[in-house]
Simulated scan of single mutants.
Amino acid sequence: MRALTVVPLQSGTAEVRDVPEPGTGGDRLLVEGLALGVCGTDREIVSGAYGWAPPGHDRLVLGHESLGRVRGAPEGSGFAAGDLVVGIVRRPDPRPCPACAHGEFDMCRNGEYSERGIKELDGYGSELWSVEPDYAIKLDPALAETGVLLEPASVVAKAWDQVERVGARAYFAPERVLVTGAGPIGLLAALLGVQRGLEVHVLDRAESGPKVRAVEGLGATYHSGQVSEIAGKLRPDIIIEATGAASVVFDAIAGTGAYGIVCLTGVSSAGRTISVDLGGANRSMVLENDVVVGSVNANPRHYTAAAQALVAADPDWLASLITRRVPLERFAEALEARPDDIKVVLTLGR
């Protein structure tokens, strides 16, 4: 069968090649791969920035944003042939650390977790893949075209979970949220904000195009400008930061109203420096009881919450987030970031 593979830490090695099919039977689901979302993590792995092949192997099968249909399932697994499924990305470390031992492997304490398509486990970028039933999420058939958005939506569901857990430390009745960045994470964060009945604002650099239309389609308000200026006017209760741009991150941290919560979901590039008034930021955060929390990855309850959010969304709006579908053999086109891209998806069938 065909799979998208790469030699980790070696740029220019990505290629579609034949690999052995997963075995049938046993205690795993056999799944026909339908689609694979492409994100910045995949581009960085292909560039040679990082990635880890499975022990004893030179190549890694890419892909962590999955969508497939079950071909075969163990008896009593809760799955059946024809079910639409997504595979969870992370697996707990084998020790395990205290967080992993309590099912919170997205909060792993020692970094010895593994991840499909990223770290020491082959991903979902193949025509067939297998997965343990405990790490598969069954989707509503209505998500047959857009269920590939579940993994990024799970990241967002965790971010909102973190915000609400922090908010619960005291009286918490947020009204206004600002999302910085209108990529898939930012737009899905905005969706979950709208579903919570909040006044949602989204900030991005684009002045027209699909990102602007997607925000307006949610009934949210789109902004293009400086974070400090927009946040200063809005004084949001919550900021979900989804760009990872250093200057945006710092302006977001300083941009909430009193008792504000900033959740950082974008990963910044190392090596870039900016001048900041750390003392002023510290004073503001302390005197206003502000909180900044980082959030990455997700565990099964976040995937389940994300699946519910996607089913509740307007199907046409969800479909608008997938701006390009590219056949597997033309994967290089999918890895090229284009100005009007929101989510690019590889189709895995012939």
Rank of each mutant, 00 (worst) to 15 (best):
Leu328Thr: 07
Ser66Glu: 01
Val200Cys: 06
Arg325Trp: 07
Asp341Asn: 05
Gly63Gln: 06
Arg325Leu: 12
His57Phe: 10
Pro339Glu: 13
Val179Glu: 01
Ala242Glu: 05
Gly209Asp: 10
Gly37Ile: 13
Arg165Asn: 11
Arg324Trp: 13
Phe250Glu: 03
Tyr124Arg: 00
Leu335Arg: 03
Arg71Thr: 04
Glu21Ala: 15
Leu67Trp: 06
Leu62Asn: 00
Leu188Ile: 02
Leu346Val: 13
Ala319Ile: 13
Glu229Pro: 07
Ile45Trp: 03
Ala73Asp: 03
Ala309Trp: 12
Arg71Gln: 13
Arg69Thr: 10
Ala153Cys: 12
Lys119Tyr: 08
Phe331Asp: 03
Gly68Glu: 03
Lys158Arg: 15
Arg205Gln: 13
Ala159Lys: 01
Gly23Ala: 15
Val200Met: 04
Val262Tyr: 02
Val291Met: 08
Arg169Gly: 00
Ala189Asp: 06
Thr180Tyr: 00
Val6Ile: 12
Cys108Lys: 03
Met107Thr: 09
Ser11Trp: 00
Ala252Asn: 09
Ala245His: 13
Ala242Val: 07
Gln10Trp: 11
Ala281Phe: 11
Leu348Ser: 11
Ala246Gln: 04
Asn282Gly: 15
His102Tyr: 00
Pro98Glu: 08
Glu336Tyr: 03
Ile88Cys: 02
Gly294Ser: 09
Leu318Lys: 01
Ser66Ala: 05
Asp290His: 11
Pro184Ala: 14
Gln308Ser: 15
Val7Gly: 00
Leu4Glu: 07
Gly37Glu: 09
Phe105Asp: 02
Gly78Pro: 05
Ala182Asp: 06
Glu175Ala: 14
Gly72Asp: 14
Glu151Pro: 02
Glu75Asp: 11
Val70Lys: 01
Ile230Gln: 04
